[in-house]
Every structure is written in C-alpha cells, then in structure tokens.
Simulated scan of single mutants.
Amino acid sequence: MGMMTEFREFAMRGNVIDLAVGVVIGGAFGKIVSALVDKVIMPPIGLLVGGVDFSKLAITLKAAHAGPDGKEIPAVVLAYGEFLNAVIQFVIIAFAIFLLVKAINRLHRAPAPAPEVPPATPEDVLLLREIRDALKK
C-alpha cells in the first residue's frame, strides 16, 4: 500500500475530520472571545478603575535609545496588560467549554437500568411444585 493511499485513509477517518472541524471552529471562537474581551469587557472595567486601558499596561525595563550607528533601539517592556487580557480570554473560553461539555453530558444520559431479573427458583422448590401438581391430577 502506497504512502498516499495510507495518508488518504488516515485523513478520511471520521475522528480526524471532526478534529479538523473542531480546530477551525475553536479558532473562530477564540477570535470572537478576544474581541469580546478587548472591545466589550475590558473598556468598562478600565473605566471603573479610573480610565485605565488594560491592553496598554506595561512596565518599561529599559527605555528606547539610539544605538551607536544612530538607529533607534526599541524599549524593552513587560506588557502585563496584554497578559491580563489573555488570562480573562482563557477564563471565558474555559467557562464556555465547561458549559458545552456539561450540556453534552446531559444529553448523553445513562441508559435506563435493565429490569431486575428475579432469582432462579431453587431446585427443591421446583420438585415440590412438581409433586403438588402431580397430586392434583
């Protein structure tokens, strides 16, 4: 079997295609959550804490300066505001996935228990019934 045939069989398995669809939808969902956090959630929070734009929060470790050849060397900054936005995005995505998994688990309810099978009648009871039935005749 050729490598291309083997690859085609691998790629066309149902779970591989499902995974690919999940990755694409997950990427789109991530962009939606990023926009939600950056454009909808963080601005009001920034306004409540004194007009702070969280995405711009940073600590300058080394200021920008001109190098020996006259070219500007950019500043070295610790952009903790962007990290804070990423953490909030992660929490929102994790919560959404939690709700999705919870809903899916609710749909996959446990099957109804099988009816209880009565215990087998002991042999001595069966023999006594047989004797009783024979005496009735």
Rank of each mutant, 00 (worst) to 15 (best):
D53L: 10
T121E: 11
A64E: 07
M4I: 13
D69C: 12
P115H: 05
L84D: 05
L128A: 14
I73Q: 13
G50N: 12
H65Q: 06
G67L: 13
D69F: 06
I41E: 02
K62D: 09
L135W: 04
L57R: 04
E123A: 11
M42Q: 13
G50F: 14
G46M: 04
E72L: 09
A134S: 11
F7S: 00
L84I: 07
H108K: 10
A114Y: 03
E123W: 01
M1I: 10
V21A: 09
A20C: 13
R8A: 14
A35L: 13
E9A: 06
A64Q: 12
F54P: 03
I41A: 03
R106Y: 15
R109V: 06
P115K: 12
R132M: 01
E130P: 02
M1S: 00
V16G: 06
G26S: 10
V76P: 01
K31R: 05
V21D: 06
I25K: 10
I93L: 14
V91Y: 08
I131Y: 13
I73C: 12
P113C: 11
L36G: 01
I59N: 00
I92L: 15
A35D: 13
F54N: 05
L78R: 13
V77Y: 03
I104W: 07
I59T: 11
V125L: 15
G81N: 04
N15R: 12
G22H: 01
L47I: 02
M4Y: 09
E9R: 12
L128F: 13
M3Q: 07
L47K: 12
P44A: 02
V91L: 15
G14I: 09
E9Q: 09
A86K: 10
A96K: 05
P122G: 14
A114N: 02
K31Y: 12
D133Q: 10
D38V: 02
L126I: 13
L126D: 01
V52I: 15
E6V: 14
L128G: 03
P113G: 08
K137A: 13
V23P: 05
L48D: 02
V52H: 00
I104R: 15
I32L: 15
I45Q: 06
A79R: 06
A112Q: 07
V23D: 04
A20E: 00
L135H: 02
L126C: 00
S34T: 01
L36K: 06
V76F: 14
A134C: 11
G50I: 07
G51D: 05
A114H: 06
E9K: 14
N15D: 08
L84E: 08
K137V: 09
M42Y: 06
V23L: 15
P43C: 08
M3C: 03
K136H: 13
F83E: 12
G81C: 08
F29A: 14
V21P: 01
T5Y: 07
Q89L: 01
L57Y: 03
T60A: 04
D53F: 08
I25D: 00
I73S: 11
L107H: 01
L61R: 04
F7W: 15
A64P: 11
T121F: 06
V87R: 00
A120D: 00
L99M: 14
G14D: 07
G67I: 02
R13A: 09
G2P: 05
V101K: 07
A79H: 05
A35T: 07
P113R: 13
R106S: 11
F54C: 08
A114S: 03
V21S: 07
V125N: 02
R8T: 08
N85E: 05
